[in-house]
């Protein structure tokens, strides 16, 4: 990766997966937030929800700026998925492992974002995973395999800066490996 680049990566995933929290955990500046009162408590019981985007950034040692965009999770905001996904250098999909529909969510978001950014690295962060249950990660890998691609999958706590950095660093490493392969 050349020095002083600007990279755009996108955090996506269903409502309540922790996209806003993840970006706030690592951003060098307070992120731009578009949270509004949540009227859809049936889908996820939380006070506020992102309706347009989150935007933060982190600076790397070589001067590269990584812009971190978070999407809204709900399907009614899917027009923002396309807008934010366009031109991204990679996608980090966050999932809620305590959601019984987690595999269906993985299939949905992976399909949509592979369509929007088909050539870019794709990383999955599984939050609130069942403790000691590696099968859940295996099940996620099987879903991706059924979609004919593979991606690193990590069990993460998005409130922890180091966990979110792990996802970002893995994505950046994937980009570097691809650049080396192409050169």
């Amino acid at each position: 990766m050349s020095a002083a680049e600007e990279l755009k990566i996108v955090f996506t995933g269903p409502m309540g997966a922790g996209k806003t929290t993840a970006i706030a955990a690592v951003s060098d500046v307070p992120p731009v937030s578009t949270e509004m009162r949540n009227h859809d408590q049936a889908s996820f019981a939380k006070a506020a929800t992102t309706v347009a985007l989150d935007l933060g950034h982190i600076g790397l040692d070589d001067g590269t700026i990584v812009r971190l965009y978070g999407t809204p999770g709900q399907e009614r905001f899917s027009f923002m998925w396309e807008i934010l996904g366009r031109g991204s250098m990679g996608v980090i999909l966050l999932l809620d492992g305590s959601n019984p529909d987690v595999l269906a969510e993985l299939r949905k978001y992976a399909t949509v974002f592979r369509g929007i950014a088909p050539e870019q690295p794709f990383i999955v962060g599984l939050g609130r995973a069942r403790p000691g249950d590696d099968e859940q990660l295996d099940d996620c890998a099987a879903v991706l395999k059924s979609l004919h691609f593979s991606a690193p999958i990590f069990s993460v706590d998005v409130r922890r800066r180091e966990d979110v950095l792990l996802l970002i660093e893995t994505l950046l490493t994937s980009l570097e490996v691809r650049e080396q392969d192409l050169s």
Partner: peptide
């Protein structure tokens, strides 16, 4: 409705 709420939130941000 969904788009205008996003744009309203963006304009406020």
């Amino acid at each position: 409705a969904a788009m205008s709420s996003s744009m309203q939130a963006l304009s406020e941000a």
